[in-house]
């Protein structure tokens, strides 16, 4: 089963890639109550996500459902943690496909996830660029 063209989203269009409320809640557990923790989290995400994304790509290319599951599971969780809910939903979808060993379907969704990831990265960099 292949995704229809209308499912492919333009990285510049659609709803906001990041729910700022998710990141705002980290002020409550920030040692000084500011955005410092949120920014640190975002940086960690930016640093680590690229690697995980590559693992997903390899897993699909290597048709390895378990490696795919492990990587998507991990990324799903951290993606949700930075408030990128749409992207997190895509990773959840990918995880379910990995469990079901639907590698071809996963390849289609992964393309979509990569687009959304780009949008998220832009949004995250914008966020970091804001005054701390």
């Amino acid at each position: 089963m292949h995704a229809t063209p209308k499912d492919i989203r333009d990285p510049q269009a659609g709803p906001a890639p990041i729910d700022r409320k998710v990141l705002d809640q980290y002020r409550e557990i920030d040692p000084s109550g500011g955005p410092g923790l949120a920014h640190r989290i975002v940086r960690i995400y930016i640093d680590s996500a690229a690697e995980t994304l590559r693992q997903i790509e390899q897993a699909i290319a290597g048709r390895d459902p378990e490696a795919l599951r492990q990587a998507t599971h991990s990324l799903k969780s951290s993606t949700a943690s930075i408030g990128a809910m749409s992207l997190a939903d895509l990773f959840r979808e990918l995880e379910a496909m990995a469990k079901a060993a639907r590698i071809d379907d996963a390849a289609v969704v992964f393309d979509e996830a990569r687009n959304e990831y780009e949008r998220v990265l832009v949004a995250l960099r914008d966020l970091l660029a804001e005054a701390p």
Binding site: I29, S74, S78, S81
Partner: peptide, 16 residues
């Protein structure tokens, strides 16, 4: 936790 974001968040929440 193998996942660094969650790990960092848990650390922050518990240290808080």
């Amino acid at each position: 936790d193998d996942e660094p974001v969650t790990r960092e968040l848990i650390k922050a929440a518990l240290e808080k």
